[in-house]
Simulated scan of single mutants.
Amino acid sequence: MTRSRTAAPAGRRTAAATTGVGKTAKTDKNRAPGKTPKRNGDTPAATAGAPDRDSDAAEQTMMLVGARIRAMRLRQQLTLRDVAERTGVSVSMLSMLERGVSTASVGTLVAVASALGVHMYDLFAHKDGADGSPVTRLAEQTVVRMGEGTTRRVAHNDAAAGLELAVNEYELGGASGPSATHHDGREFGVLISGQLTIELDGQSHVLEPGDVIAYSSERPHRIANTGDERAVAVWVNVDES
């Protein structure tokens, strides 16, 4: 594998998702000694200190997403193998995803949504924004947190233009998924902070703050945080049809 700079694989964790805007948990100064707080991604909701009800809500969300994916697939008369060939995601993983018990990553959801002719945004329930307003408030944006150590905030979705604008955050070692995926369309990304390695067809490209990358989503790709701090990037997915 050739490299433009450096690369390091990211670990695999259990995935879950929630929608809505989340707030960073504050450190509990009165925490009993000897107890170590969980890091982001250690809980199903991927939120430090999240209560059990948040975990249950995240699991329920993934079950609803899985059911929506299955309904879309059947409506288009596609088999699991058809979707697997379009995305690079295994049939067994897709089956678990539809049943709401998979370890689906953001990359997997993006690829599966594209294979079904929609954006990942369309797989989730959303808060209604102001009719006719050109502004999408933060509270109206959909947030998806995954156990792979990533958070994807869909800042804007334009179905007519086939465009989805997202702000992605990657914890230390976080990644878009355990392996590369592919789907229709094109992607454009600009790194705001931290460091990201984009793997394309076996070649790694390391981004530093301010760097931009553009590529066809049909190329097998994976995004990983190979730096020593949280990475934040703005990502645009565009349909080419």
Rank of each mutant, 00 (worst) to 15 (best):
A7H: 14
G11S: 14
G11R: 13
R12I: 09
R12H: 12
R13G: 15
A15S: 10
A17T: 05
T19L: 09
G20H: 04
K26V: 06
D28N: 07
D28I: 08
N30W: 11
R31E: 04
P33K: 10
T36R: 13
P37V: 05
G41Q: 08
T43F: 14
P44E: 05
T47R: 14
T47A: 13
G49C: 04
A50V: 08
A50L: 07
D52C: 14
S55P: 00
D56T: 13
D56N: 11
A57W: 11
A58G: 07
E59P: 10
Q60K: 15
M62S: 08
M62W: 10
M63Y: 08
M63R: 09
L64H: 07
L64Y: 02
V65G: 03
R68H: 04
A71M: 06
L74N: 06
L74F: 08
R75F: 07
R75L: 06
Q76F: 15
T79W: 09
R81W: 06
R81I: 07
V83D: 04
A84H: 11
A84F: 13
E85Q: 09
T87D: 02
T87E: 01
V89S: 07
S90Y: 10
S90A: 14
V91R: 11
V91D: 10
M93W: 14
S95Y: 15
S95L: 14
M96K: 15
E98L: 11
S102W: 03
A104V: 05
V110C: 01
V112C: 03
A113I: 01
A113Q: 03
S114C: 07
S114A: 14
L116P: 06
L116E: 03
V118K: 12
V118Q: 12
V118T: 10
M120W: 08
F124R: 02
A125E: 02
A125F: 02
D128H: 11
D128A: 12
G129Q: 05
A130L: 14
S133Q: 12
P134N: 08
T136H: 13
R137Q: 11
L138N: 15
A139M: 09
E140A: 14
Q141T: 00
T142G: 11
M146I: 10
E148P: 09
T150N: 01
R152H: 04
R153P: 03
A159C: 13
E164Y: 01
A166T: 06
V167G: 03
V167F: 05
N168C: 02
N168D: 04
L172G: 08
L172C: 11
S176H: 01
S176A: 02
G177L: 06
A180D: 12
T181C: 05
R186F: 15
E187Y: 01
G189F: 00
E199W: 01
L200E: 00
Q203D: 11
S204A: 15
H205T: 03
V206P: 13
E218A: 15
E218Q: 15
E218W: 14
H221G: 00
H221Y: 01
I223K: 02
G227H: 11
D228K: 08
E229Y: 06
